[in-house]
């Protein structure tokens, strides 16, 4: 287990309980989506993984070591965190300088640094924008700069906070491929997302947070059934799941590919319940 969280509880100074006994583990190469309502504690949880917040009680272990005994610099070698708002993260005068900042701080040798920076720019579609000032980029592009600067640190764990927000079609495709290829390389990807279609297409496992607790944790194929069983209005079923249910199909459908595969076999005159 590269991440091991046990009975994690956290309160903000004003007394609000943001996390309340959260426990789960994540293995190397897993792709885990963290979903839940606004204010459920998703970002607070992510901030614990990089040591920005320290547990009030319980433990967060990264690669077998509790975060409260690791320095920020040590954690930074293991967990890369891409903030929801790129402007919380960007500071350099050009894209290439921004992306080079992390590997320079981690004191990688120059040749490795150059390789990591180029690879990160390529994987995020920013090679052509390398000399641009981040201020002159759109929000979606700045988010990809923030992502590239984390990729360049070559951490075994990458945490993404709302990666598809503000991204155009090509960038969403690129992000999906990136999540898949990071996992194929054995790196662990955790993403906070409200984009349920992106979630079912690129993740193995879903953790639902509600009021600071883990409300559900399981394989992505079983997740639509969970959403359907709860009346949690903050969660939305993927489009193909809703279509399959409306057509009266039994069992879960999550993706377009899965839907089309079943379509020829679903030869019953489908009941179409209104609003179902």
């Amino acid at each position: 287990m590269i991440i091991r969280i046990d009975s994690l509880t956290f309160r903000y100074p004003n007394g609000t309980t943001a996390l309340d006994g959260v426990s789960f583990g994540v293995g190397a190469g897993e792709r885990v989506a963290i979903v839940g309502a606004n204010g459920a504690g998703k970002s607070t949880l992510a901030r614990h993984l990089v040591g920005i917040e320290r547990p009030a009680s319980g433990t967060v272990e990264i690669d077998g070591r509790p975060t409260d005994r690791l320095g920020i610099a040590e954690l930074a070698r293991t967990v890369g965190f891409v903030f929801q708002n790129p402007d919380d993260q960007l500071h350099a005068a050009s894209v290439v300088k921004e992306v080079g900042f992390g590997p320079r701080n981690l004191r990688f040798p120059a040749a490795r640094r150059a390789e990591l920076v180029e690879s990160a720019l390529r994987r995020t579609g920013l090679t052509a924008a390398r000399d641009t000032h981040p201020h002159h980029l759109s929000l979606g592009e700045r988010k990809r700069v923030a992502l590239a600067s984390v990729l360049a640190m070559d951490t075994p764990v990458v945490v993404l906070d709302e990666p598809t927000t503000g991204q155009d079609h090509a960038s969403i495709v690129l992000l999906g491929n990136l999540v898949d290829s990071l996992a194929a390389d054995g790196r662990t990807v955790l993403a906070i997302t409200h984009d349920m279609d992106f979630c079912v297409e690129h993740f193995d496992r879903v953790i639902v947070l509600a009021n600071g607790r883990v409300a559900w944790d399981g394989p992505v194929v079983d997740w639509p059934a969970h959403v359907a069983d709860t009346a949690d209005e903050s969660l939305e079923l993927p489009q193909m799941t809703r279509l399959g249910r409306r057509l009266g199909w039994a069992g879960p459908v999550t993706t377009v590919a899965g839907f089309l595969e079943r379509l020829p076999a679903e030869a019953g005159p489908a009941p179409v319940p209104p609003g179902g």
Partner: peptide
């Protein structure tokens, strides 16, 4: 042309377009 314009089509549209290619 929606994707060329940078906009992700709805999954409903994608599914129907692929199904249409198979006369479904």
């Amino acid at each position: 042309r929606l994707e060329e314009w940078g906009v992700s089509p709805l999954r409903y549209t994608v599914a129907a377009r692929r199904a249409a290619a198979r006369r479904l």
